[in-house]
Computed example of a mutant assay.
Amino acid sequence: MVLLGTLVNGLTIIIGAYIGVKLQRIPEKMKETVMKAIGLAVIILGITMALEGQEFLLVIFSLALGGILGERMNIEGKLNQLGGVLGKRMKRGSESSNIAEGFVAATLLFVVGAMAIIGALDSGLRGDHSVLLTKSVLDGFSSIIFAATLGIGVMFSSIPVILYQGSIALGAAYIVAFVPEELLDLMVSEITAVGGIMILAIGLNIVGIKPVRVANLLPAIPLAVLFVFIINTIA
Rank of each mutant, 00 (worst) to 15 (best):
A177G: 06
G203M: 07
L204C: 15
V212N: 00
V188N: 07
N205H: 04
A201V: 01
N205A: 02
A193E: 08
A220M: 10
S189L: 15
L218K: 12
I209T: 13
V179I: 13
R213P: 05
L170G: 06
V212T: 07
G171E: 01
D185T: 09
I199N: 12
I168K: 04
L184W: 02
L186D: 14
I202K: 08
L200R: 00
G208C: 02
G196W: 13
R213L: 10
E181A: 10
I175V: 12
A172K: 11
F178S: 12
I206V: 04
P180G: 04
A172Q: 07
I191Q: 01
M187P: 08
I206M: 07
P180L: 09
L186P: 04
A193Y: 07
I168V: 10
V214K: 08
V188R: 06
V188H: 00
T192V: 10
I191D: 03
E190G: 14
D185P: 00
V176W: 04
I197M: 14
S167E: 02
V176Y: 03
I199F: 15
S189M: 14
A172R: 08
A169V: 04
L184E: 01
S167T: 09
R213G: 04
G203E: 08
G196N: 12
G203N: 06
A172V: 14
Y174K: 07
M187D: 06
I175Y: 05
V194Y: 10
G171A: 07
M198T: 05
A169I: 06
V194C: 09
S189C: 15
